[in-house]
Design a protein around this nucleic acid. Structure first.
Length: 580
RNA sequence: GGUGGGGUAGCUCAGCUGGUUAGAGCGCAGGACUCAUAAUCCUGAGGUCGAGAGUUCAAGUCUCUCUCCCACCA
């Protein structure tokens, strides 16, 4: 048994996330967390909303709400959406939580103590009309690069050039529209990442369990030279630049930059979890306090890799304190929507709350896992979605459960046939074939989960389900029944055990349906783990196929998976603007 | 422009350190079965592995050039 700390990249606060966000971080992290728990590991899965920064303020202004109220509302919405998708977070925190203020201020203090933070003067746009500095997207103007109007302070949407707000031509405030702005000097704290380059490189050299992509991105940044970054902004919404309640002189109207405090929330949320549940957070994060045996796994989109391999480690290593650093990370590409991008701002694609109006969470979880954007971008279409659900869930799994449980109820009284009562049947070739195939596939399935290969795990799960239909066709208990009821009893008994087994292995990806199956088989909640015994897999599989108590009563569940009809697809495409 | 990923059957994708007739699912065609959500099972047809050149006894799998798609960085 191992101790596994899992974090998913924090979903940003400015709205309910779309399916791409879900598929690229939270969902695979959840599937992994569930699988590892089933294997008997001690798992802590932490997530939170990322609430600071300019986009949050702008979104709140759009909604006509105070930022704090807006964040409260959106946090609740995201929490609800996560719960509806059966995210098994041990804790779903907020980067605006008090604990994160304290932790962020503490780490900044430690970095400064170690000489890694210094104050520097920089030029920023100040709005006289608004009485405030205009960081990042708060200032707009004409792009100095391409001449387009409406370029934002951090980037021109027209030419894609990254900008410095002070370089905009004819700048104006995005808050009030006022052109009464000027360039003023202001002090900011800079994190001297350049001083950390050697230590980071040494750490990355030793890192194992990173995908090539992650290492190459990290090395590229190191090779080009890490730039010192400002970690404060002229804003009110955020974590105050203070220490132990005392504001830093001259920084009363400044806060820490969102990219500095967001990853720290992984730690702070763990602390909040511990406070709420009576656990010890330091045993997960401090290697001097028991975290040395923790394996820390991070899930994220590809755009987040540099922050997790360089920025956050810089903070932790630079503090000089013995923090747990990432061991393995899993990065995902994007899910595309009919060939284009999902977009929160343009409301393009399906969002988590809407998705559940269309189909149950299991359907989405299954499709987005089987079609996870692991090697490359993965395209989403309703047609693919429907085809996969109808085939994998309804036809292969759902129909199998249905056919054998109904048959048992009809011919064997709804009970697992007991060998004492039906003693004449013989173990034969169909059974040998089944055992051989499962003995090969089950260990592969487990290995795929351990390797975080989610597409392959889903595909292997499906292949295992399919063995049930193959077996029933060969054993054909309905034919045997006509001449040899005892022989039919073997097929039914093994079939029922397969149902239970299929439910057990389905749990990480489709927890609801798996629960329904296991409930119908009357299997106690504490008897659904992946403890498959030791030794030879053939023997283990034989035990799995005779696990249900003889005479044990079962019931035939309702239709587990309703199929998606062509008419549904058409309606959804109309509603969500999917283009062919 | 730089870096990385991708371009393999109609579609979605597997193919590890190069080696027998290039695989899976879906779709399609034919057959079987009737316990089951017109489900299932079996068989089959489909690919000069983006283009070109090179290394090698042997390349989808290595090298170079070109080309298209995507992301990140500039």
């Amino acid at each position: 048994m191992a101790r596994i700390l899992i974090t998913s990249a924090l979903p940003y606060i400015n709205g309910v996330k779309h399916l791409g966000n879900l598929a690229g971080s939270m969902l695979p992290a959840d599937v992994y967390a569930r699988a590892m728990r089933l294997l008997g590991h001690e798992v802590l899965y932490i997530c939170a909303t990322d609430e600071h920064g300019t986009p949050a303020e702008l979104a709140a202004a759009d909604a006509g709400m105070a930022v704090a109220d807006y964040c409260d509302k959106m946090h609740d919405a995201q929490r609800a959406a996560g719960a509806d998708f059966k995210m098994s977070y041990d804790y779903f925190g907020r980067s605006s939580a008090l604990s994160n203020h304290e932790m962020t201020q503490h780490l900044a203090h430690m970095l400064e103590t170690n000489g890694l933070i210094e104050e520097r003067v920089s030029e920023q746009v100040y709005s006289n009309a608004d009485g405030r500095f205009l960081p990042d997207r708060y200032v707009e103007g004409t792009c100095p690069n391409c001449g387009a109007d409406g370029a934002r302070g951090d980037q021109c949407d027209s030419c894609g050039k990254l900008l410095d707000p002070a370089d905009l031509i004819e700048p104006y405030s995005a808050v009030s529209g006022s052109k009464d702005v000027e360039i003023r000097q202001t002090n900011h704290l800079y994190l001297k990442q350049s001083d950390m380059a050697d230590r980071l490189r040494a750490w990355i050299d030793k890192a194992e369990g990173w995908p090539n992509l992650a290492k190459s991105i990290a090395y590229k940044w190191l090779d080009e030279g890490l730039h010192d970054r400002a970690i404060t902004r002229d804003m009110k919404w955020g974590i105050p630049v203070a220490y132990k309640g005392v504001p830093r002189p001259g920084f009363e109207d400044k806060v820490f930059y969102v990219w500095f405090d967001a990853p720290i929330e992984y730690i702070s949320a763990t602390k909040d979890w511990a406070d709420a549940t009576g656990h010890d957070w330091q045993s997960w994060w401090r290697t001097d306090k028991g975290a040395d045996d923790v394996t820390y796994v991070e899930f994220m989109g590809k755009d987040n890799v540099a922050f997790h391999t360089l920025s956050f480690p810089t903070t932790l290593i630079g503090s000089g304190e013995p923090w747990k650093l990432v061991d393995r990370l899993k990065a995902f590409n994007w899910v595309t929507w009919y060939g284009g991008k999902f977009s929160t701002s343009q409301k393009r694609g399906v969002f988590m709350d809407q998705a559940l109006d269309l189909a149950p969470s299991d359907y989405w979880r299954w499709h987005l896992t089987a079609n996870a954007p692991e090697g490359a971008d993965a395209g989403f279409t309703f047609e693919d979605f429907a085809a996969r659900i109808n085939s994998d869930l309804a036809n292969v799994l759902g129909n199998f459960v249905n056919r054998i449980t109904k048959y048992c109820v009809g011919k064997f009284d709804g009970k697992v046939p007991c060998p004492k009562k039906y003693g004449g049947g013989e173990w034969g070739k169909p059974e040998d074939t089944l055992v051989a195939e499962l003995a090969e596939r089950l260990p592969k399935l487990i290995a795929y989960y351990e390797a975080m290969e989610f597409r392959k795990a889903a595909s292997e799960t499906r292949a295992i389900w399919a063995t049930g239909n193959e077996y029933l066709t060969e054993a054909a208990p309905w034919s045997q029944y006509k001449t040899d009821i005892d022989q039919a009893a073997i097929g039914v008994r093994i079939g029922l055990n397969l149902v239970a087994f299929f439910g057990v292995i389905a749990q990480p990806i489709i927890p609801d349906a798996a629960g329904k199956i296991l409930d119908a088989m009357h299997i106690p909640k504490d008897n659904r783990t992946w403890k498959f015994g030791e030794g030879d897999w053939n023997e283990r599989v034989k035990a799995i196929l005779d696990a249900l108590p003889h005479g044990h009563e079962i019931s035939a569940p309702e239709v587990l998976f309703t199929k998606i009809e062509d008419a549904d697809i058409e309606e959804w495409k109309q509603r969500f603007g999917g283009e062919g």
